[in-house]
Design a protein around this nucleic acid. Structure first.
Length: 501
RNA sequence: GGCCCCAUCGUCCAGUGGCCUAGGACACCACCCUUUCAAGGUGGAGACUCGGGUUCGACUCCCGAUGGGGUCACCA
């Protein structure tokens, strides 16, 4: 039974993969993997105006990056291809001809303009805007005349008439639609011969042996149309499961105006795929207990449609960001270094040279608790690569009082002769110096941090000293002493060290 | 507007008639740890939309109202 599970993700390549689409793809993937079934990728590029090959590529890249691999698709083929609707036109045409031959469909010569006008009129009279069926029973002569006017016909399918269509939805139960209200004679083949969504989708789901259609709730009201087509075409319909929508913080449908919503934008902003995927799992589904952190594989093991809820979810970047921080802290340091290096280069911190790998890893280990995204890291580590060009204002006032100069000189002397150069030895030396001077360690530590990093916050100072190395520490301490002695806030001297306090 | 779906902390999720004095997470506040900031730990504040039923007993079942969302194309 399980081996029959075949699901699909069928995006239209008219834009980037956004979080809503990603979540739909994710649920399909989880369902397929849970059942040991197949996950099919199908490109629904029947909107000739807006579809672009670049978008198809971008969507596939985003899916791959998220770790959602497909078993059949436009790029890798499969037994039921092609997997691009623009390459399946003859299939739709053939099915449309079958309906035409049986009288279940007919040619309609109404123009888009005429239809739009009638729709407006209906709306103005408070009536539902349905097709009025005026081309339903055209005689051959009338058809010829309309054809001669230069009108290009569409093919419409006949509505079923009175009755109800029940969608047995796996997540919502039975949903009944009144045929009279829901179904009019809708278009299945446009005047250019290309199929409409409902038609292409129905034909493909059948031909591709799709067992479960898992998609966003916005498609629920399309389902009666697809069921009607299945009936006319003699298809055994797939099972349907409509999953809740993902909404923007203002509870409206997600769009670009809500900031970053595309997966690739999150990638660029320094989010990790496992964080995005984990977060998306939690939007509309849960494993049933309080666990929130899990891998794709664990989620696949736990995933069932029964546990998908029915409530639209507002998506919250804050929590995603928190989760990203969690995965940043858990990430393998070599991988982290690979991800961060290009960002350091882009930030101009590398001077074309590759940093020493073991050293870089230690630097990252030292700062990553303070980062929530990769994008924050260059700034957090900048002083490891170049001298700070300013001293933080409030730090200067607090830690660079005149007496600090002497302290820093003492510290410099201690570091100058310290052996061995280890974090432990540095700490022991610093604490020893503080004790000898009869001051709190903090009174030494804070000015030193400011001198070395230009900042008042950062990783533990002894790690910073160790990672910076003796030479740079001595230079920076010396420079800070000069800065203080010059009697800050002496603007001239501040400028001299490159700052603009 | 018609039709459809939905309704627990600000947000996400748990809760399937008594285990609920409603649980967890993010965010928020406090404290602890601590050289700073984080991270981590502990604690706190914070919700069952409303009104009727059903029942010995409703967050849980039914009906209605209200609210939110979706959909009504030669877009998908």
């Amino acid at each position: 039974m399980d081996e029959g599970v075949r699901v699909r993700f069928a995006p239209s390549p008219t834009g980037a993969l956004h979080v809503g689409g990603a979540r739909t793809a994710l649920f399909n993937w989880l369902f397929a993997r849970h059942h040991g079934g197949r996950f099919v990728l199908r490109s629904e590029d029947t909107d000739r105006e807006r579809s672009r090959p670049e978008w198809e590529r971008a969507i596939m890249d985003a899916l791959s990056w998220l770790g959602l691999d497909w078993d059949e698709g436009p790029d890798k083929g499969g037994p039921y291809g092609p997997y691009r609707q623009s390459e399946r036109l003859d299939l739709y045409r053939a099915e449309a001809e079958r309906l035409l031959a049986r009288g279940d469909a007919y040619l309609c010569f109404c123009t888009p303009e005429e239809l739009a006008r009638r729709r407006e009129e209906a709306l103005a009279h408070g009536l539902p805007p349905r097709y009025d069926g005026r081309c339903r029973d055209l005689t051959a002569g009338e058809r010829a005349r309309l054809q001669a006017e230069g009108r290009r016909p569409v093919i419409r399918v006949r509505a079923p008439g009175a009755g109800t269509t029940v969608v047995e939805d796996l997540t919502r139960g039975a949903v009944a639609f009144d045929n009279d209200k829901m179904l009019d004679d809708f278009v299945i083949l446009k005047s250019d011969g290309w199929p409409t969504y409902n038609f292409a989708c129905t034909v493909d789901d059948h031909l591709m042996r799709i067992s479960h259609v898992i998609r966003a709730e916005e498609h629920l009201s399309n389902t009666p149309r697809q069921l009607h087509l299945c009936r006319l075409l003699g298809y055994d319909p797939p099972r349907f499961a409509h999953v809740p929508m993902i909404l923007a913080p203002d509870r409206s449908k997600l769009s670009k105006r809500h900031g970053a919503v595309a997966v690739e934008e999150f990638r660029a902003a320094g989010y990790l795929p496992e964080a995005i995927v984990n977060y998306l799992c939690l939007l509309g589904w849960s494993p049933g207990d309080d666990r929130e952190i899990f891998t794709l594989e664990e989620a696949a093991r736990l995933f069932t449609l029964e546990r998908v809820n029915r409530t639209a979810a507002v998506y919250d970047v804050e929590k995603l960001t928190w989760m990203n921080g969690h995965y940043l802290r858990a990430a393998d340091l070599d991988r982290l270094a690979d991800l961060v290096e290009p960002r350091l280069a882009a930030a101009g911190l590398l001077d074309g040279e590759r940093p020493d790998r073991p050293w870089l890893k230690r630097v990252l280990a030292a700062v990553r608790d303070r980062a929530r995204t990769l994008a924050e890291i260059p700034d957090l580590v900048s002083y490891f690569f170049r001298e700070p060009d300013t001293y933080e204002d409030k730090g200067v006032r607090k830690h660079f009082q005149p007496e600090a100069a002497g302290l820093l000189e003492e510290a410099r002397a201690v570091l100058a002769g310290l052996e061995p150069w280890t974090v432990e030895a540095i700490e022991a030396a610093y604490r020893g110096l503080a004790a000898r001077l009869g001051i709190a360690a903090g009174a030494l530590i804070h000015p030193t941090r400011l001198a070395l990093t230009g900042r008042t916050v950062g990783p533990g100072l002894f790690d910073v000293i160790y990672l910076l190395g003796r030479e740079r520490c001595l230079e920076r301490l010396e420079r800070a002493v000069r800065f203080i002695r010059a009697g800050n806030p002496a603007l001239v001297e501040a400028q001299q060290v490159g700052g603009k306090n």
